[in-house]
Amino acid sequence: MALDAFESRKAELKGDGKAGRWFSPLQLHVLPKLGKVPVSDIDQRDIRDTLAPIWHTKADTAKKAMDRLGICLRHAAALGLDVDMQATDKAKALLGKQRHTVKHIPSLHWRDVPTFYQSLSEGTVTELALRLLTAKSTRQRCKCPSKRGWNVCRLHGAEGGAPFGTAHPNYRHGMRTKEMENVRRLTSLLGRKVRDTIEVVT
């Protein structure tokens, strides 16, 4: 029933739900316990017992699983099966208010970015992606302004004044220029890693 409900909603999901994010809360937390129970036999106590272990510790996941289960029950009702349409609402009442407090992950201070960037040296796909994201997070001005009064050179947005690109006399000394060369290198490496991964999977 869960798979049938998922199939009916694919058109509403990004990429037809191929990433699996819609179905995973059901697959991981509901189906292992209720997958073999006839949908018409599922009641609020079954749902409560299934989601109680994660109701407070993984509140967001539990909420998604509850919502997805409600969709499955409504789908079953639309097929003419005798199901309790209020089972999820009753289960929420039995479980009570979630005590989980959202804790935001603190951002990395910009002064620590260079050190963090240098620590990403193993060349894994994850580290390449992180290096690509942080490559320009230096918070420093361009070191080769094209004309007086500008904080960036023509390479980085100034209008007129100096030759463009490699013709600029200080091309090799622009910090962000070097970073952009590094970005291109990282992009190429990351692309190769992704292609290799796709070839292995397929």
Results as ranks from 00 to 15, higher is better:
A129E: 15
T138F: 07
A135M: 00
I54H: 03
K136R: 06
L31Y: 04
T187G: 05
H104C: 03
V183D: 01
A19D: 09
P114R: 06
C72N: 10
S119W: 07
G191A: 14
P53M: 08
L189W: 00
A158T: 03
T202L: 05
P145Q: 01
Y117V: 05
F116Q: 01
A135Y: 08
A52C: 10
G70N: 15
V152A: 14
K18L: 07
Q86T: 03
G174M: 03
L79E: 15
H104G: 10
P145W: 02
Q140K: 05
P169Q: 09
T177M: 04
G96V: 10
S146V: 02
V152G: 03
L79S: 15
V39P: 00
R148I: 00
R9W: 04
L51P: 12
S121P: 01
P53S: 05
R172I: 03
R195Q: 15
P32Y: 02
R141C: 07
K178E: 07
V200Q: 13
V194N: 01
T57C: 05
V194C: 06
E127K: 02
R48A: 12
G96M: 08
M85W: 02
E199G: 11
D89Y: 09
R185E: 02
W150S: 07
H29Y: 11
L13A: 05
R74D: 09
C142Y: 07
A2G: 11
C142E: 01
R172G: 10
Q27P: 02
K14F: 03
L133N: 05
G17V: 11
C142R: 02
H173D: 15
L73R: 06
D46E: 00
K90D: 12
L155C: 13
G191L: 09
R172C: 00
L120F: 02
L69C: 11
R192A: 10
G80C: 13
L34F: 03
R68F: 06
R68H: 08
F164S: 08
V83T: 01
G15P: 06
R111E: 10
T134W: 00
T187A: 14
G165A: 11
T57Y: 05
E127W: 04
L69R: 07
A129D: 13
R48S: 15
T50D: 12
A11H: 04
W22N: 01
L186A: 09
